[in-house]
Design a protein around this nucleic acid. Structure first.
Length: 224
DNA sequence: TGCCAGGCCGGGT
DNA sequence: ACCCGGCATGGC
């Protein structure tokens, strides 16, 4: 499969932008909330994350000092609505511990680190994978790191722009090598891909009464 | 009712 | 280098 041109990715963006307009992402107030939300939303509906963040807010725990000092059991109870809460408690604690050890709990200092190096540092924290790292960099740090997620891969694949086997870094590189390193553009492009994915790109397309429906397949319908 | 949600890790082959 | 099970709540 030939990779799409820069022009194609631009046209794709323009079509999404015309259809949906500004998405106002990330749906969180502060960089601290973005980071916490990025971890909590792993494989989880944002609706559930909102409850967890509201609990943290109410407990005054949207704060790196408080998060550091909060016993894991109490943190787990606060973020319970987000699901996989034991795992996420470990991951939040791992990040907080790292943030204090590496940057003295100071986000400003953290984001002063040059992009490629900071991305590697974040990836070294247990529980922060590529998408979470990129979301933190882009939406909390305003650094031009393109965020790829399940929707991105699915939408691009269904429209014939990437191979089904394309992995995270391939897709990320595709955008970053085709587009200017522009933070508002990266921000909006990812948000638009999520929006169109939610509305038009189901994970497993189904066809009525298909005897093979339980098997993975690309699509029984034309692309949206 | 089962499937899904803005992943990631660790163990197995 | 892949592949897979586990994690867990809430909505449709």
């Amino acid at each position: 499969m030939s990779t799409p041109t820069a022009q194609t990715l631009r046209t794709f963006y323009d079509a999404l932008s015309a259809a949906y307009g500004p998405q106002h992402w990330w749906p969180a107030q502060t960089p601290t909330e973005v980071i916490i939300g990025a971890i909590l939303t792993q494989n989880t509906a944002w609706r559930n994350v909102e409850r967890a963040i509201a609990n943290l807010q109410e407990a005054g725990a949207l704060d790196w000092t408080r998060l550091r000092d909060l016993p894991p059991e109490q943190l787990a109870e606060l973020i319970r609505p987000a699901g996989t809460y034991q795992v996420k408690t470990r991951r939040l604690k791992a990040f907080v511990t790292w943030l204090w050890e590496r940057y003295d709990g100071d986000l400003q200092r953290m984001f002063a680190t040059p992009l490629p190096a900071l991305r590697e540092e974040l990836l070294s924290v247990s529980g922060i994978g590529r998408e979470t790292a990129d979301a933190i960099l882009l939406y909390a740090g305003q650094l031009p790191s393109f965020v790829v997620d399940a929707y991105t891969a699915r939408v691009l694949y269904r429209h014939g722009l990437i191979d089904e086997s394309a992995d995270y870094d391939e897709i990320k590189d595709l955008f970053e090598s085709s587009l200017p390193a522009d933070v508002p553009l990266f921000n909006e492009y990812h948000a638009l891909l999520v929006q169109v994915g939610k509305l038009h790109c189901r994970p497993r397309p189904r066809c009525a009464d298909c005897p093979l429906d339980s098997f993975p397949h690309a699509s029984c319908e034309p692309n949206d």
